[in-house]
């Protein structure tokens, strides 16, 4: 087969895999290749990301409270505290709905402004390699940002996103400039969506995401907390 035929074959095969159409033996063979081939894993992820839109029209239905009770009884039969795991991060990036807070003090910014900030966030990488402190001044609708640690990757930029409460589609707030300190003035509409939202920073090509949605790695996230 030519290279293009191989490529097409894998594209179709990955689609069949995602649609659960492969027979058991084909599926097992495909999964064995997945372990070894990153390009194939990318194809699968692309199909998953595309086809998941088929669920867009499915309305949310609150499950009965009993399901959560049962789940917690299954997972946490005792009260021993488990070690922190990565999905605290996952929860933070989705559960914009209700986030219990933390407070970050940014003395330098506080001194500069006549108004008191009403909202704050620490947008941080899990490993601490990128930390951007944010605070919002309601009176001026200014979102003040201080990049405390970390930098954009070479030839790339950092783009700031807001995931509003109850939404899973990030909204771009803009590309962070090279300066460590900057200020974005938000529209009233965006400002109103900050409360209980989550800020995130993604790795993007120069000029920011070409699609209106994050295209690169999500490098840092942090919930917006009321002061």
């Amino acid at each position: 087969m030519s290279q293009e035929e191989d490529h097409n074959d894998d594209t179709a095969l990955a689609g069949e895999y995602v649609l659960n159409l492969l027979e058991d033996d084909e599926r097992a063979a495909f999964e064995a290749r997945l372990v070894a081939e990153a390009a194939l894993r990318d194809r699968v992820r692309e199909w998953d990301e595309s086809l998941v839109d088929l669920t867009d029209g499915i309305s949310p239905v609150p499950p009965p409270p009993m399901v959560k009770d049962r789940l917690q009884a299954t997972l946490f039969p005792e009260t021993i505290r488990r070690k922190r795991s990565l999905w605290t991060w996952l929860a933070g990036s989705i559960a914009a709905a209700i986030i219990v807070g933390f407070v970050v003090l940014m003395p330098s910014l506080l001194q500069e402004t006549a108004y008191e900030p009403t909202l704050t966030a620490s947008v941080a990488a899990e490993d601490g390699t990128l930390v951007v402190a944010a605070q919002f001044i309601a009176e001026t609708k200014a979102l003040e940002l201080v990049r405390e640690t970390g930098d954009a990757r070479p030839g790339r930029v950092l783009e700031l996103w807001l995931i509003a409460e109850g939404s899973d589609a990030p909204m771009s707030l803009g590309v962070l400039p090279d300066d460590a300190e900057t200020r974005f003035t938000l529209s009233l509409d965006v400002a109103q969506q900050l409360t209980n939202g989550v800020l995130a920073i993604s790795d993007e090509p120069p000029g920011g995401s070409p699609t209106g949605a994050p295209t690169g790695d999500v490098l840092a996230i942090g919930p917006v907390t009321s002061l």
Partner: peptide, 27 residues
Amino acid sequence: MRVSLGDREAFSLLYDATSAKLFGVCL
């Protein structure tokens, strides 16, 4: 500098934020 939540609290929040959509998909 991170969300100061216990794992279980975070899990509970995640559940509250996403379970309705996921339950819709299950149904």
